[in-house]
Amino acid sequence: MSDPNPYLANPYLDWVRGLEASLRAAAALEPPAPAEAPAPAPAGTPERTALIFAPHPDDEVIVGALALRLQRELGFRVTDVAVTLGSNLARRPGRLAELRAACRALGFALALPVPDGLSGINPRAEQAEPENWEAAVAAVAALLEAHRPAVVFLPHEHDWNVTHTGTHRLVLAAMRRLPALRCLTVETEFWGAMAAPNLMVESSAEDVAELVSALALHRGEVARNPYHLRLPAWMIDNVRRGAELVGGQGGTAPDLAFATLYRLRRWEAGAWHEVLPAGQVLGRHGSLAPLFAG
């Protein structure tokens, strides 16, 4: 006689139900109170400065796992460049306040290309709004020249959202304005997965919890879509993807729980140069220094 309820025999049922219950319990948690003062941040030098070009407030946290490790393990000064403050003009003051709180929580500095954030940053803007685009490129180039970063984070060219892909084009145009600029670039993903990431960076449970907490400080955004609660699941799935895309097709998956995928290259003489002969996995106990200290 067959089992009247075959689900009862499934050894994974309680585990999946536990995940569901945990997600619902997390939704009832109160977001953290914003810190009054920023977390201690290294003073930084041009050799140890990283700029995160974030298309929207919250992207600095979503892709910030590697930046957080650079700050804590190698003493980098990390500055979030808020390229835009979103398209909703009425929400911009609120989003800026939330962004300041999130950056304080992580110890990131904050810079804006212009006081209210840029507008019209999308792939068609260069042709459709040339004056606005030229002003935006000049503002980003001025930031790059002022900070002289060792590492630049920017979205990859196919990150789906038009402001993400526009930010890629914007930062690339600004870098081309500076012939002497030499830095590592770290391309990031969120809305659209990279076809060829070459670096998988593990995060500890403590770091993931800190990122979730900082993301929760973008209160207005997570109130409409609690994506901060799904950040750990995204990072778990990154391990699945990275095992093949970074580690090699058909290889054995590394024993990681949470990771973020990136594409690491060097920018020099107005062009990109490869720095990794093959994909690399950086576990949470591995040293970042061989890639980022020189």
Rank of each mutant, 00 (worst) to 15 (best):
H56Q: 03
A41F: 06
I121W: 03
L68E: 12
R91D: 13
P115G: 05
D80L: 00
D116I: 12
E47K: 13
I62P: 06
R69I: 13
L96D: 01
E60Y: 04
G120D: 07
H56I: 01
P42K: 14
A43I: 14
A82L: 05
P42H: 15
R92M: 14
F53S: 03
G86Q: 09
T49W: 05
T79H: 03
R48Y: 14
L144C: 07
V83W: 01
A67D: 14
Q127E: 07
R92K: 09
G117K: 00
L106N: 12
G64C: 04
T79D: 01
R77M: 05
A82W: 05
F53N: 08
A125N: 01
V81M: 00
F76R: 10
V78I: 14
H56A: 00
L106H: 07
L112E: 15
P42W: 07
N88G: 13
L66K: 11
A109P: 08
F76I: 09
V61D: 05
A43N: 15
T49C: 02
R91P: 12
L85P: 03
N88C: 15
G64L: 02
E47L: 12
L144N: 05
T84C: 10
D58Y: 02
F76Q: 12
E47Y: 13
S119P: 15
L144A: 01
P115R: 15
E145I: 09
P55H: 03
L143R: 02
A142L: 04
P115Q: 13
Q127W: 13
A109I: 02
V61Q: 01
I62S: 09
E60K: 03
T84L: 13
R69D: 15
P46R: 03
G107N: 15
P42C: 10
D58C: 04
H56C: 01
D80V: 00
N88Q: 09
L99G: 03
L85E: 01
A138L: 05
V63N: 04
A102W: 03
Q71T: 14
F53E: 06
V114K: 10
Q71S: 14
G86H: 14
R92W: 08
E134C: 10
F53K: 03
A142S: 10
E129M: 14
A128G: 11
V78E: 07
P42V: 08
D58H: 06
P46S: 07
P42E: 09
W133V: 01
A141T: 00
A43M: 10
A50M: 07
V61M: 01
D58K: 00
V81C: 04
R124P: 03
N122C: 11
A90S: 15
A82P: 11
E145A: 03
F53L: 02
E134S: 08
D116E: 09
V114R: 07
T79E: 08
E131L: 09
P130A: 04
A82T: 00
D116F: 11
E129S: 04
A101V: 11
G75C: 15
E129T: 11
R48V: 09
P123A: 09
P130S: 05
A136V: 00
N132E: 13
P113R: 05
L68P: 12
A65F: 12
A139R: 12
A138N: 02
E134D: 11
I121P: 02
V140P: 08
E131H: 03
A109H: 06
